[in-house]
Design a protein around this nucleic acid. Structure first.
Lengths: 202, 202
DNA sequence: GTCTATATACGGATAGAC
DNA sequence: GTCTATCCGTATATAGAC
């Protein structure tokens, strides 16, 4: 939206416009003309800053990966009991999974992964793998404090995130209605299963 | 691969070639020229049988949806106890989720869902929703026979499939290595969680 | 560095002969 | 129904002026 100003630098304007275009339309459908128009610059300016379309796309993904999980700090669960901690984690992850940006990234990255393997790996490392590491840390902490009995935190983390995806993640990817299930309902169900499956007295 | 023969009809050859091209390359990257070349026909022949590219794509998705879950018959669990039934279901679903065709469909359909909402809905109904219905039936049967205590089979089905997706589904979508976890290990873990969470004596 | 204008190629779709 | 040849729009990328 913001017209390009010389102070911020047109490179940033191009990058921001490219993020919008690629994530909204997908790699193939987002033309360089569209990016130029959104950025308020000419196509030649884009090519002055980036070697080509695929390089611009790579820069977009890299930029978003950096900020991908900035808002996800889970050390705050260290004083909570298991139900509260799991509820907090579940809510955070579910909101992240269903955020428009995450959904757009999911689509565009999986769609181009075959043609850009390095980008796919970078995305996974900076996104899902980083989130998983945070969850693993939290689960290990709950185990250490006797709140849960988690022998394999990595595996438990995968199951937890998978349950949160459930059906609703795909529905959102497809642009379909939620099917009458709201997020809090899902969080409660997932927490209940986790508490039963990883109860300390088991 | 197979050259078009008049006996089978060129329409089928076009459809088969289109399936290969769209699922391998994605909708945008698969050109009509590429489809024509793979089918061994001219582009004009394609347009004699299909109104245009998007209609051809729709026909491809529809055709694959019909056969999507043909191999998934779960009534066979009706004589099994809970561990055996859950193990069978989990193995079948996981193999389906990670099959190359399913992964390709997942990518291409989510990628084009925003531009083709009807197709997205048809895919969901014929694929994931149909599979879910089969699982719900099996879980309800286990509940009826006292093998499990499942108050909400729909919800339980969503959690089950989600756990199976876990991390490995995304890894496969991205073309990354499995991360050292094999399928049987995932099946065992998921079954264990399900048995604990939905134990009849709970 | 940035723009206007353009080179070059490719993709979807069609005309017309057979 | 099927082919060859082609129209026409659009896409990536660049040349050259300022």
């Amino acid at each position: 939206m913001a017209k390009a100003t010389r102070s911020v630098g047109k490179r940033d304007a191009v990058l921001a416009a490219a993020q919008d275009a690629f994530l909204e339309l997908g790699y193939g459908a987002a033309s360089m003309d569209a990016v130029a128009a959104r950025a308020g610059v000419s196509k030649a300016t884009i090519y002055a800053h980036f070697p080509g379309k695929s390089a611009l796309f790579g820069a977009v993904i890299a930029a978003r990966c950096e900020r991908a999980f900035a808002g996800l700090d889970l050390p705050s669960v260290e004083a909570m009991d298991a139900p509260a901690a799991l509820g907090l984690i579940a809510r955070r992850i579910l909101d992240l999974l269903l955020s428009p940006e995450s959904l757009a990234m999911y689509k565009v990255v999986t769609g181009e992964a075959a043609r850009m393997p390095e980008m796919a790996e970078a995305f996974h490392a900076a996104g899902p793998a980083a989130a998983k590491a945070a969850i693993v840390g939290a689960l290990a902490d709950l185990d250490r404090r006797g709140q849960l009995r988690v022998a394999d935190p990595e595996l438990a983390s995968e199951l937890l995130v998978g349950m949160l995806k459930g059906d609703i993640h795909l529905r959102h990817l497809l642009g379909l209605p939620d099917g009458g299930r709201d997020r809090e309902q899902i969080v409660e169900a997932v927490v209940r299963v986790m508490l039963r499956a990883y109860a300390p007295g088991g």
